[in-house]
């Protein structure tokens, strides 16, 4: 083992501080803030550990950053929600395998008095048009996350290029964006899990949901072991496969927040070719 001075020092510090955590028995999962903030992992990770003895260390970031962490080989497995980007990630050779794991949906929230009357819209695109037409304040994540990408797709499909003082790109996480929307009585597009878990709604309320285009698909990406030989490929695969097993799918389905089921297992979805 090559070990120069500073490296030995780092290793010594590492030993002194991280003694409690057995890195060998753990894998690192890069996931999205939406899953972390809802508390899903607090529910399913212990079950996985019980079954396999493997500890999952969750780094919760935006989907864009999760891909970057994966590209650099800084995680063993990803759980993200941007199907198109996930497919590109596989075809670029960063991931060995991708599976649909679970899904839920996005929601459109806004001030309770609903000046744009999106509650009366007959589709998601109609709701977006109503906001843009009235130039009602709208806060966007603006952080290239899965939710942000889904929101931009809707604007695009509605034939709108959102710009102007009413459209605020925050460059913030889902929670931060909701905090800002609550403070300025703005509309925003959120994933249902974060919205349900969110504790600072103030005047915000759920105004529109249920359109098929607001579907939110989560996928598990197993990093390519050839490209990143150091990743804990075997343990990561156990997690990857456990998520799709009866046990894993049951664990996801049984997660409840405020009495609500937030993630729906994908066991019906066939594996990607």
């Amino acid at each position: 083992m090559r070990r120069s001075g500073p490296r030995a020092l780092f290793a010594a510090i590492a030993l002194a501080i991280t003694g409690a955590v057995q890195a060998g028995d753990s894998i690192t999962l890069a996931s999205t803030t939406s899953t972390e903030a809802s508390g899903l992992f607090d529910h399913i990770v212990p079950k996985f550990r019980e079954a396999t003895g493997i500890h999952v260390r969750v780094v919760a970031v935006g989907t864009g950053q999760a891909f970057e962490i994966g590209r650099r080989g800084d995680a063993d497995v990803l759980l993200v929600h941007d199907t198109a980007a996930e497919e590109a990630f596989v075809s670029d050779g960063y991931a060995a395998e991708r599976r649909h794991v679970m899904s839920n949906d996005f929601v459109l929230v806004g001030p309770a008095d609903d000046p744009a009357d999106v509650a009366g819209a007959d589709s998601a695109l109609d709701a977006f048009r109503r906001i843009a037409d009235g130039e009602h304040p709208f806060t966007s994540r603006g952080d290239d996350s899965g939710t942000h990408r889904a929101e931009r797709n809707l604007w695009h499909d509605a034939g709108i290029q959102p710009r102007g003082r009413w459209y605020r790109e925050l460059g913030s996480g889902m929670g931060g964006t909701l905090n800002t929307a609550a403070a300025m009585d703005a509309y925003t597009y959120a994933d249902r899990a974060t919205w349900t878990a969110f504790g600072n709604r103030q005047n915000l309320t759920l105004l529109f949901d249920g359109d098929d285009v607001m579907f939110n698909q989560y996928g598990s990406l197993l990093l390519d072991g050839d490209r990143h030989p150091h990743v804990k490929h075997d343990k990561a695969r156990q997690w990857h496969e456990w998520l799709l097993s009866d046990q894993g799918q049951e664990a996801i389905a049984s997660f409840r927040l405020r009495g609500q089921q937030l993630f729906f297992p994908n066991d019906a979805t066939p594996p990607e070719p």
Partner: peptide
């Protein structure tokens, strides 16, 4: 400290040691 970085092989990213550094 990233795996793709010069000290990546130490595997220190996402550990308390990385925070200390």
């Amino acid at each position: 400290l990233s795996r793709a970085g010069p000290l990546g092989e130490l595997g220190l990213l996402f550990t308390p040691t990385a925070m200390v550094i």
